[in-house]
Design a binder for these strands. Structure first.
Length: 437
RNA sequence: GUGGUCGUAGCUCAGCUGGUAGAGCACCGGGUUGUGGUCCCGGGGGUCGCGGGUUCAAGUCCCGUCGAUCACCCCA
């Protein structure tokens, strides 16, 4: 029986997932990120320390616990993202790490929310972060979208757009406007797509103490969107001035312009996005997959200047995380990915009779020694059945022992003489191929 | 966590106002004493998600529960 929110894939889907993970991993490493794995659990107060009290955290409990109601101090919870555990890890090991520290982490995370399509309670995230001691140069903020863009380019998936904003722009703008509760304004404006400008304006007046004019200005800011640097002029044209606003605009401009040079069309400044996690202090990212916009962001992250510290030393960071399970779940659900075979096997060695198994196994060994995934037919059934065994699984070759041996490409029907010591399948057939459907 | 919709063979679905289950595809076997994908013939497979209730009788009505999905919340 399935458990709600805990998806499990079938073998062909798992082949796709592993190849996707291989691409993600190799791309991360191309940019110099080191792999890290942290434990699944963190002390509850670590998980909740950054004000994420609304998070649905799964708790860990022993069956034989003496008194479940007592000892809440050292309560453990499953992590709900990879950034908070990473920040904890950095502070814990700061003496052994070299900064700036670039790491990637591909692990399961857990959130006790109501599942829907593309929303799970247990899911895989692929996360990169850069952390430095004291201050982190801003150019790392511009690197994040480039890494993600390269990952997506290497995968057979629809085009994606990375939406970028900067909290300093919003906070500076709101403050320059005379609104003090910038967090509340941000939360309200974030609902723009859902409830529309009229309701957002009304809510701003009601909950954030805005005047009609202030509310209108907030909406005007939220409407701004561009794939080049023109957004900055449009913001300035709104006539609000504030040092933080200027700083934010400069940063956002760098992200957009860097992306425009290295990956045209990938990034768009979108001044209405906010991102839920409230530890972000500057740049924020989210990603829309073309054709899947209604399922929300498949990648998100941002800059956090205050997440980690030891004594009075700060460890600011910036990171972004790919929602691997969401991405795959959506694509699987829409039958958008195909794989050339459902098993790793490249060659099936036919078996003429059960007492010839040793001979077939010798051929299989010879092929395996040279890296060709090979299995011997499970029974000495009629050759037609053995070919069918391969065909059902999408295995491209069937090998017939004989004098001489022959190998048949069952897609074309072509059968040629072959020597197990030298025969090589076409490179594309060595492993299952994942493609868009 | 709150509310709505849905849940019949592996898959897609049929089953009228309640009378104890069917099709196509898939699968297995045979025609084809041994190199498949066509065709023909035959076959297996369903506690109608699960539990309870109403009724002489429930796939069909009611309640609960689990699962899928949608909205809210939140977010990958």
């Amino acid at each position: 029986m399935p458990i709600s929110g805990f998806p499990e894939w079938l073998p062909p889907q798992r082949i796709i997932e592993q190849q996707v993970l291989d691409k993600i991993r190799s791309t991360f490493e191309l940019y110099g990120y080191s792999s890290l794995e942290t434990r699944a659990v963190e002390p509850l107060d670590t998980l909740l320390s950054k004000g994420e009290t609304s998070k649905e955290v799964y708790l860990l409990r022993r069956l034989q616990e003496d008194d479940p109601s007592a000892k809440q101090d050292d309560q453990l919870g499953l992590h709900f993202d990879l950034t908070v555990p990473f920040a904890r890890f950095v502070t814990e090991n700061n003496g052994k790490l070299q900064f700036p520290f670039k790491r990637y982490q591909i692990q399961k995370v857990w959130r006790g929310e109501r599942p829907q399509e593309g929303r799970y309670r247990e899911f895989l995230q692929a996360d990169i972060d850069v952390v430095n001691r004291d201050t982190l140069p801003f150019h790392f903020d511009t690197e994040m979208p480039l890494v993600i863009g390269d990952v997506f380019k290497s995968l057979p998936i629809p085009d994606a757009t990375i939406l970028v904003n900067n909290r300093k722009v919003c906070e500076g703008f709101y403050r320059g406007l005379g609104l003090e509760d910038t967090a509340q304004v941000l939360r309200t404006v974030d609902k723009l797509d859902k409830i529309g400008p009229e309701k957002v304006a009304a809510a701003l007046v009601e909950t954030a103490g805005a005047t009609d004019a202030q509310a209108a200005a907030c909406l005007a800011l939220a409407e701004i969107s561009s794939t080049d640097g023109s957004f900055a002029d449009r913001v300035r044209a709104l006539g609000v001035s504030d040092p933080l606003l200027d700083e934010g605009l400069g940063e956002l401009l760098q992200v957009v312009e860097t992306a425009a040079e290295h990956a045209p069309g990938l990034v768009r400044a979108e001044l209405k996005i906010a991102r839920g996690l409230d530890y972000y202090t500057g740049t924020v990212y989210e990603t829309m997959l073309q054709g899947y916009e209604r399922f929300g962001s498949i990648t998100s992250g941002g800059r956090y200047d205050n997440l980690a510290s030891v004594g009075n030393t700060r460890f600011p960071g910036v990171g972004i995380s790919i929602g691997v399970s969401r991405l795959l779940g959506l694509l699987f659900g829409h039958d958008a990915l195909a794989v050339s075979r459902s098993v790793p096997t490249c060659v099936v060695i036919a078996l003429a009779a059960e007492d010839k198994r040793a001979e077939s196994e010798r051929i299989a060994s010879a092929l395996r020694r040279r890296g060709i995934a090979t299995e011997v037919a499970p029974t000495a059934a009629k050759f037609g059945k053995q070919i069918q065994y391969a065909d059902r699984r999408g295995i491209p070759f069937v090998w017939f022992p004989g004098e001489p041996d022959t190998v048949k490409d069952i897609r074309s029907g072509e059968q040629v003489e072959a020597d197990a010591a030298t025969w090589q399948p076409p490179a594309v057939d060595l492993h299952p191929n994942v493609s868009a459907r």
